[in-house]
Nucleic acid binder design. Structure first.
Lengths: 337, 337
DNA sequence: TTGAAAGCGCTAACAG
DNA sequence: CTGTTAGCGCTTTCAA
C-alpha cells in the first residue's frame, strides 16, 4: 500500500487537516510547518491519491474522449493535440473507441460519466437526444459535429466544428476553372455529420455553377474504402471511357490516396486523365503521388480547440476551424471528352 | 448530483448493504428483494460511482497505457487492439503520450499510479531501474521492450515482445538469394529496444553470410524520417551510381514508404535498381507502390497479448509475437554494379 | 494557525 | 438473508 496523508501527518507531527493544507499549498499554514510537512512527504515518497481527492472534491482531474476509430489518422491527430494540451495542466485522458457504433458509444459514456470532469465526443454517432442527455450529466464538448438547428443547446455543451464551406466551395470552383463540367464526390460514413456538411457544400456550389454532382457511398473512410468505392465505378483504361469520373473530390485524404491507387491500377493518369482532391491536408510531402490537392482542415487544430473548451471555463459556446483549398499536383485541366 | 446507492436503498426500503449486494449480483440476497432493488435502481437511473467503489475495493477497473506517440500507426494499432479487448471486460483505458521522452513518461506513470490497476508501457524509453520501480508500485506490462538480461525481473512485471530474428534473418537471406552483396539498414529512434533487436538480427545474419551491413541513423520512425534519412545518401540517377544502396531494410513500413518516395524522386526504380524491405505489414494493399516486401510483426497482435497479460491473472511472465518475411514486389534481383 | 470530525459513494466484515 | 458499522484517502467546515 502506498503512503497516505495520515502517515505523512503523523511523521510530521501534525493533523491530517494541516498536512492536507500544506500539501495543497494553502496559505493558512505557517511556512515552517508547511516546509516540514513537505519534506516529510517527499522523504516518504508520498503521492496523493487521486481517488480520495476526487471523492472529496467532486472533481476527478480526468477527461473522457470518445472517438469512432483510434486508428484513423484524423482522430489520432485530434487526440494527440488534445492530450498534449490537457496533460500540461496535469489532466488525464480516458479514451474509448466506439467503432463507429452508437451503442458502444453510449456504453462508453455510461462507463466514463462517473470518473471524468468533461466528456469530449469526437464525431459522435449519437442522436441529438443522447448527446443532450449526456450533457445533462456532465459538461460535454462535441467536436466535429453540431446539433440540429432545432435542438436547443444545453448550457454545458460546447460545439467545435470545421467549416468546410470555404474549402469545398473553392475546390469545386477550382475544378470548374480547369474546365471540368461534372463532379464526383466520394462520401464519408453513413451517419457522419461532417460528411453531410461536405456534401451540402458541394451541392450548393455545384448548383451555383450549374455542374452535375454524383455522390458515391462508401463503407469506411480510409484507404481501402476509397480504393473499393472507386474501383467499382472506374473502368480500365481503354474500356468504356465515357463514364470515367474526371473530377473527384474525396471525403478525406486517406480516401483520396485509395482513389489514386485504384486509378493507377486501372491505368488512368492523375492529373492527366482525372483530377483528385482530398481533405484534411494530413499527408506528409511525398506520401501521395502526385502531391495531393486538398482542403486543409487540421484535426490537430480541432483538438486544440477542444482542449481550450475543456480548460477555459468561459470558452465560447462554439468555435470553428476554417478551411481553405491547397492546390498541388493532383488536379489538372479537363481533357476533351 | 447523480443518484447514490443510499437513495436507491431508501426507495427500495432496504439497507445500503443489501442494495449493494443486490446491485453487484450477490447470491446472498433473496430474489424478490433483489428484483425490487434492481427495478428501483433503474427507475432512478442509478449508475454506481466508480470512484466510491474503487476507494472501497482498492481496484479501479482502469488500466493506464503509455505510448511514445499516439500518432504512430504502430502504437495506434496496438492501442486499438488493447482497448477493444479490455473494453469488453468493462475496463477503462487512460492513455498518455510520452512524446518519446523519459521525463514525460515518468510524470505520466506518477499521475496514473493511483488510479489504475495495471500499467501498460509500450516501447518504454525508461531505464530498467525506472521500470522496476514502477512495477514495485503496481503491476506493469512491458510491451515491445525487455529488461536487460542482468536485471532481475520483478514478480509483477510481464514482458511482451516481438521476436524479430526470424523475419529479419529471412529478409537478409532473401536479398542474398537475389544476388545482393551488401545491405543497408535504416535504423529506428535512438533509445529504441526494438531498433537494437533489429540491428542485432541483421548484424548476426549478415556476418553469417559475409555481407557488409551499413546502418543509417534516423530521427523519427515515420514517412518523413525515412525520406529524409535516405535523401541524404541517395544520389540522383545518373550521378555517382557506385554508392547507391541496392538493398535496403527499413525499421518499419512508414520509413520504407518514405524510402520509396525518396528513391522515386531521385529517379531510381524499385525493385529494378533498388530493393526495399519494410517491417510490420501495416500497409493496406495498394498503399505502397510497388507492393512492399515486409517483415510481418503485427502491433495488433502485440496489443492483444498485452490485453491477455492484463486480464488473465496467471498469464505467462512473458510472451512473444513471431515474425516472418512476406515477399511482395519491392525486392528484386541485384543488378550488376 | 491548527485540530477534530464529518462525509464524498461504496464495499465488506461481523452480527443478528 | 439482512442490517449495522467501519473504513478506503482525502478535503473542508467548524471550533479552538
Amino acid at each position: 500500500m502506498a503512503t497516505t496523508i495520515r502517515q505523512v501527518a503523523a511523521a510530521a507531527g501534525v493533523s491530517v487537516a494541516t498536512a492536507s493544507r500544506a500539501l495543497s499549498g494553502s496559505d493558512a499554514v505557517v511556512p515552517v510547518t508547511r516546509d516540514r510537512v513537505l519534506r516529510v512527504a517527499s522523504d516518504l515518497d508520498y503521492t496523493p491519491s487521486r481517488l480520495g481527492r476526487s471523492l472529496a472534491t467532486g472533481s476527478t482531474g480526468n477527461i473522457g474522449v470518445i472517438l469512432p476509430d483510434v486508428t484513423n489518422p484524423f482522430y489520432t491527430g485530434f487526440l494527440a493535440a488534445l492530450e498534449s494540451a490537457v496533460a500540461e495542466r496535469d489532466i488525464g485522458v480516458l479514451v474509448g473507441d466506439s467503432h463507429e457504433t452508437p451503442e458502444l458509444e453510449r456504453r462508453l459514456i455510461q462507463r466514463m460519466a462517473g470518473q471524468v470532469d468533461t466528456l469530449v465526443l469526437a464525431s459522435s454517432r449519437l442522436g441529438d437526444e443522447a448527446v443532450v442527455a449526456a450533457s445533462a450529466r456532465l459538461p460535454v464538448v462535441l467536436a466535429n459535429r453540431m446539433l440540429e438547428a432545432a435542438t436547443p443547446v444545453p448550457a454545458r455543451l460546447r460545439q467545435i466544428t470545421i467549416d468546410v464551406e470555404p474549402g469545398f466551395s473553392a475546390a469545386v470552383r477550382h475544378l470548374h476553372a480547369l474546365g471540368h463540367r461534372a463532379i464526383t464526390y466520394i462520401d464519408g460514413p453513413a451517419h457522419s455529420w461532417s460528411g453531410r456538411q461536405k456534401a451540402q457544400a458541394l451541392t450548393r456550389t455545384c448548383a451555383q455553377l450549374d455542374l452535375p454532382l454524383t455522390t458515391v457511398a462508401m463503407t469506411r473512410p480510409d484507404f481501402e474504402g476509397g480504393r473499393a468505392a472507386l474501383a467499382r465505378i472506374v473502368p480500365q483504361r481503354g474500356g468504356a471511357r465515357w463514364d470515367v469520373p474526371r473530377a473527384i473530390i474525396a471525403f478525406n485524404d486517406q480516401v483520396a490516396l485509395g482513389l489514386l491507387s485504384a486509378l493507377r491500377d486501372a491505368g488512368w493518369d492523375v492529373p492527366g486523365d482525372v483530377s483528385v482532391i482530398g481533405c484534411d491536408d494530413s499527408l506528409p510531402t511525398g506520401m501521395a503521388w502526385p502531391a495531393l490537392t486538398t482542403v486543409d482542415s487540421s484535426s490537430r487544430t480541432l483538438g486544440a480547440l477542444a482542449a481550450a473548451a475543456v480548460l477555459e471555463p468561459d470558452a465560447p459556446r462554439s468555435a470553428t476551424v476554417q478551411t481553405r483549398l491547397i492546390v498541388r499536383d493532383s488536379t489538372g485541366r479537363a481533357v476533351a471528352g
